[in-house]
Write a protein that binds this DNA or RNA. Sequence first.
DNA 1: GTGGTCTAGACCACC
DNA 2: GTGGTCTAGACCACG
Lengths: 130, 130, 130, 130
Amino acid sequence: MFLRINPAADIPIYEQIVRQVKFAIASKTLMKGELIPSVRELAKQLAVNPNTVVRAYRQLQDEEILASRRGMGMIVTERALDHCHTQRVDMIRLRLRQVLEEAEQSGLDQATVRELVESEIAQLKHDIHL
Amino acid sequence: MFLRINPAADIPIYEQIVRQVKFAIASKTLMKGELIPSVRELAKQLAVNPNTVVRAYRQLQDEEILASRRGMGMIVTERALDHCHTQRVDMIRLRLRQVLEEAEQSGLDQATVRELVESEIAQLKHDIHL
Amino acid sequence: MFLRINPAADIPIYEQIVRQVKFAIASKTLMKGELIPSVRELAKQLAVNPNTVVRAYRQLQDEEILASRRGMGMIVTERALDHCHTQRVDMIRLRLRQVLEEAEQSGLDQATVRELVESEIAQLKHDIHL
Amino acid sequence: MFLRINPAADIPIYEQIVRQVKFAIASKTLMKGELIPSVRELAKQLAVNPNTVVRAYRQLQDEEILASRRGMGMIVTERALDHCHTQRVDMIRLRLRQVLEEAEQSGLDQATVRELVESEIAQLKHDIHL
DNA sequence: GTGGTCTAGACCACC
DNA sequence: GTGGTCTAGACCACG
């Protein structure tokens, strides 16, 4: 499992780990039943404080995405894929909603907003094909 | 000038003040050259510590949106309107971009994204008319 | 007597008045024995709080550059011209000194400093002839 | 890192800290990536309130000279050295300019100004060698 | 009256 | 341990 941590980002490191594990599951890089790296190992890999990894794993456990298996480590649960998918779409919907609200409050009309969306989609498409 | 502060929000109070002052300028509630409420007065209005207002005003000064007039108070600068407008649109564009990126990474295709946008715009429109 | 006040400058208004009166004396726009405008009149002219003018005149009195004449107003003293001249050169010498010290602390060598001085003198000469 | 604060100076303490940190970076006493003293530690060292240090560090953050690493402390950014250098020379040039302008307005001719500069440079050289 | 600075002490999230 | 935010209350210079 390869994660990339940015210690300068405004998102807490433990949250970055959580998100990337979820993403790895959603994109089927991590499959259900699979063992994930131990706390110590991942901490060393990411050059991060072990406590930070513990916190991330604990949150993933609370969300029933990971489960501990005595003596073995932690595995991806059966339900993980579904959870990650729905969470992800819900999050995107929520953030999209917030942006649109802010645009509306700023006095941008619907046409302008749609233009913005289209130009950003086009830009994104272009960047990807580089 | 009427500001509404939510001390329980996850966004700092001083930042809420900054944004709302910018919004008041962008929406022409505050015009250039106009005196804004004094630190003490606004602090009293918002039931907030004067230092918190000081901090907000100071940031607005650093962004050249406010300027202090010794012994008189603080006024809205000439450039304030432009600054607020461009800052606001840039911020919206940036956040929109981030959401679209995340959607793309999550495997949502363009059609689905557009559907999401449209459904949220419709929902927003509906909410406003309540 | 024509003074130009900049309320946005970082120098206090009363100090701006003091300096400009001194300058007017040093450049012989104001001659010894001459009556200067009354507090009220100058305050109106400069669109400034009368207290501010009072403060400036008071400082000029303390420095023996102005003197009050019962029932008439304030006049420029005999010694004013000398005072203003020496003060002015001393001030320039002091500030020059401070800048050179700072340059030295910043590790600029003498040659570089002399270059800076010459380039600024040239620039200044150029600006004046515009 | 050794800073020397003068609480009686007319320049604010937080500004003194800002300048000395910049100077420490410009003179390579602090290198990029390095952790600077924590807010509490520096506050104790300087016998100053932590909030005052916070304010200084925050300004340095706004100028992109420092960056905070959650839970670790603050580090010197990559760009810090450049920023400090250019800022410093620009500041000196500006102040030199102002002095020369004032000298010109006071009727001092170029020869006299150059004499002043040379005599102050000589004086400074002399003082340093004490 | 105004803003600018500083102190003292508190609580929080993060590592 | 770290920085980030906030409160409470003080003193100063300026107009």
